[in-house]
């Protein structure tokens, strides 16, 4: 039901931009048409990347009660698609086009208990949920995992607010998260909300399924921007249309095909709906499935992929050196 998700585009002014962790900026926006942000909501906005407007989604970390201030946080990834570089360059007083808070990841009030799992920058989707659960007096555990402490945005604030309800796992401090232990320890009636890298979320989803607890009690949001491998440039071919084009590391296959003039069908552009599906006709390299539309079986079969998020890489080990041949991966597809 899309009622709360009709996009109302508006101007927003940047009122603050500060570093809150290594490469993570907290950006506070003042929207022209304020609306309170529910926990789990995100905004869409337009970035300008080499002169071109591109839509990006960011979770709302917090907002004022009346919605006049909305904070997001942006990780500048070295291999980013360019959007995060634009975002990090924003200065107070700059304006950009944003939507009102949109909701695809609602927090259900009334569950017997909750586990919130944040991996790295995924914490941005979880902060507001944790705050609301705390103020409701709900029974909850907040699990926050990252590779290193300096990459963890909002850690001091979360520690101060959630105290013993917060469990922190940091890889390079030897306290890395065991997904198996985490999932095994979750109360069968609890709801688990998570946001983080796809490896983490896949592992949790698998452990959850194996445990045969209520599947819908596992809630997650994916913006389709993390995969099993770092993005590489690859080549996509559409023989029927005589198209061959490069997909740069910072751009999706869907975008590259559109750039090449191929008329594509899509909806969510984040690997959920399956509308951007293309057929795999031939492949030199390996596929990095980044969607949640296909089952594991289907992803394994690698007959079709969601081109809005999924990519080709040179080798299944993720190391260029292991590639069967030199040069980029080549993916030959059929489009509808």
């Amino acid at each position: 039901m899309a009622a709360t998700n009709i996009e109302v585009w508006q101007r927003a002014t940047v009122v603050e931009s500060v570093l809150v962790a290594a490469n993570i900026r907290r950006i506070v926006l003042a929207p022209a048409l304020p609306k309170r942000a529910e926990p789990g909501s995100h905004i869409d906005l337009y970035t300008t990347i080499t002169g071109e407007r591109q839509k990006r989604s960011y979770s709302v970390v917090d907002s004022t009660e009346d919605g006049t201030r909305v904070a997001i946080s942006v990780l500048q990834a070295p291999l980013s698609r360019g959007g995060s570089i634009f975002m990090h360059g924003l200065q107070p007083g700059d304006t950009l086009e944003i939507t009102q808070p949109l909701q695809n990841f609602p927090l259900r009030v009334g569950a017997p208990s909750y586990v919130l799992l944040a991996g790295g920058i995924g914490v941005t989707a979880i902060v507001n949920m944790a705050r609301v659960l705390k103020s409701l007096g709900a029974s909850y555990t907040l699990v926050y995992a990252a590779r290193s402490r300096e990459r963890m945005a909002y850690l001091p604030e979360l520690l101060a607010l959630h105290g013993d309800n917060l469990r922190v796992h940091i890889d390079d401090e030897g306290s890395e998260l065991s997904v198996a232990d985490l999932v095994a320890g979750v109360d069968p009636a609890a709801e688990l909300y998570m946001c983080g890298p796809i490896r983490l979320m896949d592992a949790v989803r698998r452990a959850w399924r194996d445990r045969e607890v209520n599947e819908t009690n596992l809630r997650f949001e994916t913006f389709g921007n993390s995969g099993w491998y770092d993005p590489e440039e690859f080549i996509v071919r559409v023989p029927r249309l005589g198209v061959e084009t490069r997909v740069p590391a910072g751009r999706s296959m869907l975008e590259a095909l559109e750039d090449a003039g191929v008329e594509m069908m899509f909806d969510c552009r984040k690997g959920e709906c399956g509308l951007c599906e293309v057929k795999v006709l031939a492949l030199e390299g390996a596929i990095d499935h980044r969607d949640v539309f296909y089952s594991e079986r289907q992803q394994h079969a690698a007959e079709k992929i969601c081109c809005c998020v999924s990519r080709a890489v040179t080798s299944a080990t993720g190391l260029q050196a292991d590639a069967a041949r030199g040069g980029p991966a080549i993916l030959t597809i059929g489009v509808s």
Binding site: M1, N104, P106, E221, C268, G274, V292, F293, S295, Q298
Partner: peptide, 13 residues
């Protein structure tokens, strides 16, 4: 019609 469930598929309760 599909093997997975779209994670956004909810109606307000």
């Amino acid at each position: 019609a599909q093997e997975t469930i779209n994670p956004s598929a909810t109606v307000p309760s």
